[in-house]
Design a protein around this nucleic acid. Structure first.
Lengths: 236, 236
DNA sequence: CGGTACATTGAGAGATATCAACAGGCGTGG
DNA sequence: CCACGCCTGTTGATATCTCTCAATGTACCG
């Protein structure tokens, strides 16, 4: 959460954008895309930089192009709940109050496509299909949010960790292709704050899963040795 | 969660609808409203009836007119997480998969305005401002969902209960006007499943809050004696 | 009046948190 | 190139909060 010191570079072309099909822009045709290109600018963030903070006035929307971000809320006493991780293709900045309702920072180096609120709003105004796409993303997020509530409220530590690993693997699949190697760019503390646990419990649970032959802990992630058993532990 | 035995009555007029200003329909003008009237039908549900179930194919959208519903998800072993309570003005049925992603049943008698999916979809198609309104509701729900994640993942039992009581009071204010009497139409079990606690812990926490002079437990709800202290206990 | 469902209360158990020590990796600097 | 220190992660011992199991109480309804 360092101060924001970003680098901006000229936009690449939307049609070459690797994440276009996953993103809001998937709903735009070629002509619209060319117009759209002028609205966004590519911005880089270094590891641990803040992209925006809860309660900031929203001035931009962000489309994640590369890297991973943590999205979180803090209680006044410092307790933190990570409400999600943002991956390439994710769209951030929607709100009703004019303020962000969570904070976001880069976990590793991150590239985003940043859109100023007003011009982007005008662009949407005339393109209901883009609005429909945005709504679709919001509704999908809402569904994920509800799943996560179930996890936070009703699952044991082991179920939480197993569910997280499988869910994270599944989210990475469209980006990296299917694999049993699951990279975990976030820290144990991040995982703990995402799952509503402490760092120690996360660590112990990882170790237990490894002892049980479900995973192997490797540098920067885990290897999923027994996906079937992990599924069973996740309790659907 | 009884089988659905509903009664249907002819529609009243949208313009007389008491919850119109809180609802999706707030975005419609008089002419649209007259057309809109023909799309929805008023449907009643008795206490504990199921309105729809998770994994059901969505065939309708619902606008709650009267009563309270619990929205919940179940784990395979029966553990339940209530993901929200629906009040008059709430709009249900948005999804991306074509299936509901939670179950909904009436807590007491409930009246909804039910819209068949296809005609409603067509109506929206031509009215981007309605879509914008729906999107606004989705984004607001998303924000609430994230707040609830913080509660589930990072708050103590006492904080959870205090937060719930204050939040519930605030949600009722636009409907009933401000009051320190907070009706609780849902059971202790419902509250427990909403807060990620057991019924016993909820009961004990209520009792403790009463002993401490923060609330008084009354029939069908509580009286908020010391709102300031409750706010403090809720830890913002 | 009795029965049922819901709520409260109590005693004890258990899962996760807390507090504390230790290990390993990595970069820095001698 | 090695030594040191820092940061992250792991492991252990203990505490504590919430859950579980059980009993009792209370309101509603036939």
């Amino acid at each position: 959460m360092k101060a924001s010191v970003v680098t901006i570079e000229p936009n690449g072309l939307c049609k070459d954008c690797s994440i276009r099909e996953f993103s809001v822009c998937a709903s735009l045709d070629d002509a619209e895309l060319r117009e759209f290109e002028h609205l966004g600018r590519r911005v880089h963030f270094a590891a641990c930089e803040s992209v925006f903070s809860e309660e900031d006035f929203t001035t931009s929307f962000f489309n994640v192009l590369d890297g991973v971000m943590r999205l979180y809320k803090l209680l006044p006493d410092g307790r933190r709940q990570i409400v999600g991780f943002a991956l390439p293709g994710d769209f951030l900045g929607m709100n009703v109050s004019g303020r962000h309702n969570f904070s976001a920072d880069a976990i590793g180096p991150v590239t985003v496509c940043q859109f100023s609120k007003a011009p982007f709003g005008r662009f949407i105004e005339e393109r209901p299909h883009l609005l429909r796409r945005i709504n679709e993303l919001a509704v999908r997020e809402l569904s994920q949010a509800r799943d996560h509530m179930v996890l936070l409220g009703r699952r044991s530590a082991e179920e939480k960790v197993a569910t997280f690993l499988l869910g994270w693997r599944d989210r990475l699949t469209p980006l990296n292709g299917p694999s049993n190697i699951v990279p975990l760019p976030m820290s144990r503390q991040d995982i703990a704050d995402y799952l509503g646990l402490t760092i120690e419990t996360v660590s112990r649970t990882f170790t237990k899963l490894e002892r049980d032959g479900v995973i192997e802990i490797i540098h920067g992630g885990i290897s999923l040795l027994d996906a079937a058993r992990a599924e069973a532990l996740a309790a659907a």
